[in-house]
Write a protein that binds this DNA or RNA. Structure first.
Length: 222
DNA sequence: TTGTGTTTTACGACCTCC
DNA sequence: GGAGGTCGTAAAACACAA
């Protein structure tokens, strides 16, 4: 039969019949096996089945491969089935128009299911990615909180040290404590960091590879 | 060969559109 | 009101492991 007759001037890929043994991803091997089984069951030679004249249940008979393929092509053309096309397909395929209608109904349902599954997979992938990103952000937040806590602790230590130092040595001129410690061996500011004038850098607390340089200005210590 | 899970065909109920 | 749509489901047909 001329496939183009079924679909008018449409762009039906006629190579479909040659290249695709299947309408829905079934392998040719599976299809062949299925056909053999069906033939054996129905006692039919080549004409597997449309009429089921071998005595099977006439109520529910499977379409032949060719019928299914042509219906599949027609479905790809247009998922809706208008009356004229239904009648034409039924006549061409030797089927009841009702069968054609039912086939389209079921095919639409399968298509919808497949679409939903694909959409679900896509959304799940996006969801997983979002969860991963959230984990990264939470880790980052945790790290920043730890750094903040350490810095605050250091600030408190410096303030208490500056307070006691100023009171006992220079009568309360604590404002310049950081700057004037001068690297005294006994001072808590004897490390190199305290030399960083005019303010305090928390780099020793934060670690060398930290990208966040938290600085405490001198007025804060006053 | 058989039990079981999946796919396909068919139907009824209900809804929408013309 | 009729035709054709979706949705849910039954049951036949089928695939496949044990």
């Amino acid at each position: 039969m001329d496939k183009h007759q079924l679909f008018g001037s449409s762009n039906v890929d006629t190579t479909f019949f040659a290249a695709n043994g299947t309408a829905q991803g079934e392998t040719s091997k599976q299809r062949a096996r299925r056909r053999r089984r069906r033939s054996a069951r129905c006692g039919g030679g080549d004409g597997d089945g449309g009429e089921m004249d071998g005595g099977g249940d006439p109520k529910k008979r499977r379409l032949t491969d060719e019928q299914a393929e042509i219906l599949e092509l027609s479905f790809r053309e247009d998922r809706k089935l208008e009356t004229a096309r239904k009648v034409y397909l039924a006549a061409e395929l030797g089927l009841d128009p009702k069968q054609v209608a039912v086939w389209f109904q079921n095919r639409r349902a399968r298509h919808k299911n497949k679409t939903l599954e694909e959409e679900f997979a896509r959304l799940k992938h996006a969801h997983d990615a979002a969860i991963l990103h959230k984990c990264h952000l939470e880790n980052e937040l945790l790290r920043l909180k730890e750094r903040l806590g350490a810095t605050e602790q250091e600030v408190r230590r410096l303030r208490s040290a500056a307070g006691s130092h100023g009171a006992s040595v220079d009568g309360g001129h604590a404002a310049g404590a950081v700057g004037v410690c001068g690297g005294s061996p006994s001072s808590s500011f004897s490390t190199g960091t305290c030399q960083q004038q005019p303010g305090f850098s928390g780099a020793d607390v934060l670690g060398r590879d930290d990208d966040l340089m938290m600085c405490v200005p001198e007025w804060f210590l006053a």
